[in-house]
Design a protein around this nucleic acid. Structure first.
Length: 261
DNA sequence: ATGCCTTTCCCAGAAAGA
């Protein structure tokens, strides 16, 4: 069985690529981020035609998360309890969606960007992660097979960026953000991809500008964190950087884990 | 300090991404 995550940067502009990728990779469940669509504009039919059930949470043309599954999808839950909002007045954004697929509790996660170290959006990012962590910890305590899959907008280790010198004063590598990410690991979550895709120089995101991909200037910011019960089933993992190539690519690559049946 | 590029809104240029 294969489970994957992919920030597609608009499902409508990427649907042809996503469809071809699903057919090529034989993935059973895909967690999607940045659908940038409401339900009215989400291409449900394209996934259903391939045999996937769909859960989508999209409130406007920003953010938006989904899970598509061909092993069943139940207990669909948008967001999570007490999720912080953004704006004035604060609005809870479409950045998380949990569903049960084949007995596993899977959450598609799109962590707020943070923008800059001193930006209010950074406080929002950290608070959002704290609340997600509280909910996620319950799944470890319950002994569930669960995973948080998505775009974390954090590079936890220095090797996860092409240049620490470049990112030193920027978002994604600050101690606050790294501590927020580490909290999930402290609670028992496991990065199930890194052991199978060791760095340095291994990334999941490359900026569209400045020929970043061609120059191998990327960041590892997309992760699959599993509970011990989930991690015990992982047999392999891969980052599909081929999918970042060519015209019409997302700026993120898909990340895939192979599970024992 | 900003643009570099891409996407959305929907036809002009701002907002957001990271």
């Amino acid at each position: 069985m294969r489970i994957a995550t992919w920030n597609v940067n608009s499902i409508r502009s990427r649907i042809d690529r996503v469809e071809a990728w699903l057919q090529r990779t034989d993935v059973d469940v895909l967690a999607i981020q940045e659908t940038k669509a409401t339900d009215e504009k989400f291409p449900f039919d394209r996934f259903r035609a391939l045999g996937y059930d769909v859960a989508h949470h999209g409130l406007n043309h920003w953010n938006g998360v989904a899970i598509v599954s061909r092993i069943g999808i139940d207990d669909i839950e948008p967001s999570f309890p007490d999720a912080p909002g953004w704006g004035e007045p604060p609005v809870v954004e479409a950045r998380a969606l949990t569903a049960t697929c084949g007995g596993m509790h899977l959450t598609s996660v799109y962590v707020p960007n943070g923008r800059n170290i001193a930006d209010p959006h950074m406080d929002y990012k950290v608070a959002w992660l704290e609340r997600l962590r509280a909910r996620a910890a319950q799944r470890v305590a319950a002994g569930q097979s669960a995973a948080l899959l998505g775009d974390w907008n954090i590079a936890p280790q220095d090797d996860d960026v092409w240049s620490m010198e470049y990112y030193l004063d920027k978002s994604h590598v600050s101690p606050r953000e790294r501590a927020a990410f580490q909290g999930f690991l402290d609670d028992g979550y496991v990065d199930v991809v890194r052991p199978h895709t060791p760095g340095p120089g291994v990334y999941t995101y490359w900026d569209y500008t400045q020929l970043a991909f061609q120059k191998r200037r990327g960041m590892r910011i997309d992760f699959i964190l599993g509970t011990p019960a989930f991690a015990a089933r992982v047999e392999g993992a891969a980052i599909d950087r081929e999918e970042r190539k060519g015209k019409g690519a997302s700026d993120h690559a898909p990340v895939v884990v192979q599970l024992a049946d």
